[in-house]
Design a binder for these strands. Structure first.
Lengths: 337, 337
DNA sequence: TTGAAAGCGCTAACAC
DNA sequence: GTGTTAGCGCTTTCAA
């Protein structure tokens, strides 16, 4: 027996297709009696609506396309959680796509998503190639760009200035009296945000007449393992560093593990600084400096911007939502306990 | 001007709708000349196909629904990466949904996905409530259940036996001469797999006439922070433990950090054991035991099972794909270098 | 190799 | 409050 369609429900309930449709959606004026009759009939025949038909017919979907570069650390999964959480109960549904930091893949993923006629798009970064931007603009759906605000958004963006974050961290570490800086990162050609943090940091150093004494940039995906290896390598360079800036917390954690094994005291001898403010940093056996990036909140805000853009045109939102990273140089006191 | 549809492309190319459709899809016999004419016309007008119409009309979608409980550690993101990676280039597209370990949410997420008429479903675990199983069966699409193989799959499953993994770890640790065991976990009521690992471990202990001397089970999501806190708490119990089994590596890493701060030597004084074999464990400053769970491979295999189930009925697959976790008690030698 | 007609399963718009 | 008609944008089927 073929899968039941609306007409089967209508027949089973003894009403017309249209009445059944209205009853199931709770739209229009349908008598309480009819509604329960239809609902029961639907239950009985095991009806599951067909969104393809619904969306084609009504010319709108409940889909929000979300495009992120990677799932290899916890950052984007947390953004997705924030989006998913905010969308819950709204009837909207997120659809995710991965680009692996590849602009070509990104364009294909976006093109594919657009063919599903999503109600809105959330994409990572402000640096899409022109062709991709054109694609997004032609789609005529609200576009929310996330993570970054250094640039001009297509419609909306929410995130933080990575240049400023790097600069702020640089200033703070100089303030702490550090003078001999090293840098450890990876894949800066692909990860524009990490590379802007580095540039911002270097600007702060330049103002003090300083620059990175030693630098290591890996080719692999960033991870604690890579951070550890590059740190060990870096520490072999001549010149005693008193501070290392990492592209992110995963790398910095690896650096800390290297220092622990070598019995270098952190942060006394060398101060380590990362980026993201991962929960992991609170558990580490020594403090590393970090800027907390509000990943979940970025996800929530992005979803809210999308919802608002789809709702009544009355409520206008700021086009650029700047969230500031919270700098933390020392271990957080256990604030709440 | 409204968004171009197939008819606009056809008009621009001077052919019929049908010919344009075939030319763009590369289906049927269309002359080379016509094909390039149509492709150019599509490019010119900025045509993006409408998958809603395509799927409704052809009665099949390129969607594979994927339902996972959480994104709060790296495990499921890696599964999703594996799926995404395998689907790339096949024309199939994964759609993700989160359940937050809530059976009610799971049912709603699945029902929602089914309304998009996916070609296959990938869901986490073998322990869906009967009602949800009924929903999946009625959908008449291949269902692949992942992570677990302790049970009977609806259609296919790929994963490992968590009971066996726990038992194997227990035996190995006994073999190592450990005798005084503690356990640290969280949310065992929701995470059935963690709770089965614990049960398996306890079975191994029971065979040796032993049991956990101290146990801590938290209410929050598992994390290094929680693992650290519960470990500190556990260590305050009377009786000197020589081994702690954790619900997973995140928790175990937290335990290690607690030991480092307290200057307890690991693994000499206390051996710590987790589960998952996260990359992080390779970077940690002391070895923790773990079972490597092939997360990415589970994702890949699940996607392949789905693809095969959708392909020519000729190729039948095993219904149950058992992957074995690789036990590691000591730090891996850097095998490849 | 190309085209015309019918219809996928639903809802919008209008009648009653 | 309920039903009827006419599509949504594409593919399938059949004919030329």
């Amino acid at each position: 027996m073929r899968k039941p369609i609306l007409e089967d429900v209508a027949a089973a309930a003894g009403v017309s297709k249209m009445t059944a449709s209205r009853a199931l959606r709770g739209a229009g004026d349908v008598s309480k009696d009819t509604i329960s009759k239809v609902r029961q009939a639907a239950e009985r025949v095991g009806y599951v609506g067909n969104r393809l038909a619904l969306s084609l017919s009504s010319r709108r979907t409940n889909l929000i396309g979300v495009v992120v570069p990677s799932m290899s650390n916890i950052v984007f999964p947390e953004v997705l959680s924030g989006i998913s959480e905010t969308l819950e109960g709204t009837g909207m549904q997120a659809v995710f796509g991965l680009t692996d930091y590849d602009p070509g893949k990104e364009r294909e993923v976006i093109r594919n998503m657009l063919s599903w006629r999503p109600a809105a798009m959330i994409v990572t970064g402000l640096d899409q190639p022109e062709e991709t931007v054109k694609l997004l603009k032609q789609a005529e759906v609200p576009v929310i760009q996330i993570m970054d605000i250094d640039g001009t958004p297509i419609d909306y963006c929410v995130g933080l200035s990575h240049t400023a974050a790097g600069e702020e961290m640089g200033r703070a570490l100089l303030q702490e009296g550090r003078r001999k800086f090293g840098y450890v990162g990876s894949r800066l050609d692909r990860d524009q945000r990490a590379s802007r943090r580095k540039a911002g940091f270097e600007r702060a150093l330049a103002e003090a007449g300083l620059r990175f004494i030693s630098v290591r940039v890996g080719e692999q995906v960033s991870s604690a393992v890579l951070g550890k290896r590059l740190t060990i390598d870096l520490l072999a360079d001549p010149g005693e560093l008193d501070c290392i800036y990492y592209s992110n917390d995963d790398m910095a954690a690896g650096g800390l593990f290297a220092c622990i094994e070598r019995k270098i005291s952190v942060p006394e001898t060398i101060l380590l600084a990362g980026f993201n403010g991962l929960e992991l940093t609170d558990a580490l056996p020594a403090a590393i400096a970090t800027s907390y990036s509000p990943r979940r909140e970025i996800g929530r805000t992005a979803a809210n911007l999308a919802l608002r853009a789809l709702g009544d045109a009355g409520t206008t939102s700021e086009r650029i939502v700047a969230l500031s990273p919270k700098l933390s140089l020392r271990r957080q006191a256990a604030t709440e306990s």
